[in-house]
């Protein structure tokens, strides 16, 4: 992971940009600023940033459209910057290829954690097929799951759910994405399936299933496998 990653901030509010700049520069990131969608897309093409922070409410075009345009030619991780009460927009953005989200007002530590997770995801494929987080160890090649060094037996569905989480470690994944990938139900509302299998994974893999640390719930949006 390069220490001086480039981060493109697309936000029309100069105050927010300044705040992000302050935060990120003091953590050794390089900042590129764009004040609207068109400029953002241009800069993304010319500067190849490592992460893009994208505000959903832009003056010239919808942040969602910027995301869709970007996704046509690039896989650069995108973190959505949004306000509370727009969970539907966030879910749509995540399902359209955004990697993560952040609600305003945001906490500095939260922001840095999201950026780190996104950067890690981008370079994850290059590292070993064995994923580790806390006491959890998953070998995607040999399909071996260990907790506290001990082998854990999972059902087929549990394993496919876990591997989906591992492939997207640190990133929030939506209910509909999970339903589509694991159950093949892209337009379904059957969130109870997801809920039940998350509960089972927690029971098998968490120290205290009632206070999960690995598999956390993101309010109204989905779940996240934390990298500890």
């Amino acid at each position: 992971m390069s220490a001086n990653s480039n981060i493109l901030v697309i936000d029309d509010e100069v105050q927010i940009r300044r705040l992000l700049k302050l935060n990120l520069q003091s953590n050794n990131y390089n900042i590129i600023e764009a004040e609207n969608g068109a400029m953002g897309l241009e800069l993304a093409a010319s500067h190849h940033p490592d992460v893009i922070i994208l505000d959903l409410g832009l003056p010239d075009k919808d942040g969602l459209d910027v995301l869709k345009d970007l996704r046509q030619w690039s896989n650069i991780p995108v973190i959505i910057l949004s306000v509370r009460n727009s969970e539907n927009d966030i879910v749509t953005a995540l399902d359209s290829g955004a990697n993560d989200y952040l609600t305003k007002p945001f906490n500095t530590n939260e922001l840095l954690a999201r950026i780190r997770a996104s950067l890690r995801q981008q370079y994850h494929e290059l590292t070993s097929p064995v994923f580790r987080s806390g006491k959890l160890e998953v070998d995607l090649n040999s399909r071996i799951v260990k907790c506290n060094g001990e082998l854990v037996k999972l059902t087929a569905t549990e394993y496919s759910l876990l591997s989906l989480f591992v492939k997207n470690a640190g990133k929030v994944i939506t209910h509909s994405y999970i339903l589509k990938e694991v159950w093949g139900l892209p337009f379904s509302d059957e969130t109870q399936y997801v809920r039940i299998f998350i509960a089972q994974l927690r029971k098998k893999l968490e120290d205290n299933p009632n206070h999960p640390e690995l598999f956390t719930t993101e309010s109204g949006i989905g779940y996240r496998l934390n990298i500890i």
């Binding site: 105050q15 705040l19 306000v83 305003k104």
Partner: peptide, 18 residues
Amino acid sequence: LSHELRTPISAIIGTANF
């Protein structure tokens, strides 16, 4: 309205937090 109200608040909180 919500955008206009939230932006300065986000800036204040974010800066203080920083």
